[in-house]
Design a protein around this nucleic acid. Structure first.
Lengths: 196, 196
DNA sequence: GAGTCAAATATTATCGATAATCGTTCAAAG
DNA sequence: CTTTGAACGATTATCGATAATATTTGACTC
């Protein structure tokens, strides 16, 4: 699980089974599960390898995530005050982590914030799709921002919180959508602007 | 595949293996694949059963689909004329099937229409999510409309086509979203209005 | 020297059997 | 009569070995 394997690495069933002191069958099961989560991909009779997500696909994921979280925020605006305090708590912890430059903790609280919104939507299908996209993104190494940017990033969540607090679904939708799009990675080959 | 199994039916691996004149392993693989597609669900140590989609989940699927197809239409508005002729072709075939009262053919062309839009978006991630939702819906028996309604239903696609033809992304987004929501099934228990 | 076919190798897919696990039944005690 | 607990039955999970398949290597022909 925590083993450092690079994208594109081949995953040979019997080899892993030997290292794990188990048989081929459980490894197969695990690989099938990872495949369903989108972490690895398997080609028939050719075996599994760690899935490599192209820049283009990553950008597409952000686009879809923006739509999904926009809609989730819209629904969550009709939720109770429990969600709101949870969101404010997340932002508070993000601010603290940002000041300390702890990008790991920041990423955790950031994730918790977004998850809280999607959970708060009350739409379990939506939550399932969001989680699928999330797992795919996790395979990327998209941390390592400067602490200065982290502070700004923490604050950039507030428009969403404000809109949900006001119960303004349309505004929350737009704010969440924009928030995700603002963090969408820029194209590496063509025009690498300072996006976020 | 074409075997008639009702939702909720248990799927015993060795039993199926016996009927198929094969071993347990391939059946397991197949069940795992079906699980990934959302057709069956497996409980640990309890086996697989045909997934039963509740009314509430079906309605949630429609809500998410509305968002996804709205966004797809927005993107597809920037696509070329090839998509447009394909969409018009689908509507034409839908009209024909509607007049003949052929609900099976209608469902096929209807599906082709919506798929064309999502494919035309050029976002493969979006396409993947849409297909997942679609497979889940397929397990439902949501055909059997009167031929009168089919004619109306065919025409209800035109606002989407018009908006895409005009290259108006925002209008296409809204039209597609509304189209899906208009077809969202109503709640069975509370207030079964004439939605459609 | 280049191309093609066959053997060798590496790896997945499948098999038959066994172990582990869960729900259920039945009997005995309170 | 109820409740507890152990044995049973059914089913999944795992094992070790074998078969099937794809890729690579190597020799042989032209």
């Amino acid at each position: 699980m925590t083993g450092a394997l690079k994208p594109g690495d081949r995953l040979v069933e019997l080899k892993i089974a030997g290292e794990m002191a188990t048989s081929q069958a459980p490894v197969r099961e695990a690989l099938r599960e990872l495949e369903a989560m989108g972490v690895v991909e398997t080609l028939r009779n050719k075996g599994a390898r760690v899935r490599v997500i192209s820049d283009e696909e990553l950008r597409q994921i952000y686009d879809v995530r923006a739509q999904l979280e926009g809609y989730a925020s819209e629904l969550a605006s009709a939720s109770g005050p429990a969600l709101l305090s949870r969101l404010e708590d997340c932002v508070g912890k993000m601010r603290k982590a940002a000041r300390k430059g702890d990008s790991m903790a920041f990423a955790d609280h950031n994730m918790a914030f977004h998850r809280a919104i999607v959970e708060g939507s009350g739409n379990t299908v939506l939550l399932g799709m969001w989680e699928t996209l999330n797992v795919k993104m996790r395979t990327m190494v998209n941390v390592a921002r400067s602490s200065r940017n982290l502070v700004d990033l923490a604050e950039s969540h507030m428009p969403i919180v404000d809109a949900i607090a006001a119960g303004d679904g349309a505004r929350a939708h737009e704010a969440a959508k924009q928030h995700v799009l603002d963090n969408k990675p820029v194209m590496t080959a063509e025009g690498p602007d300072a996006g976020q």
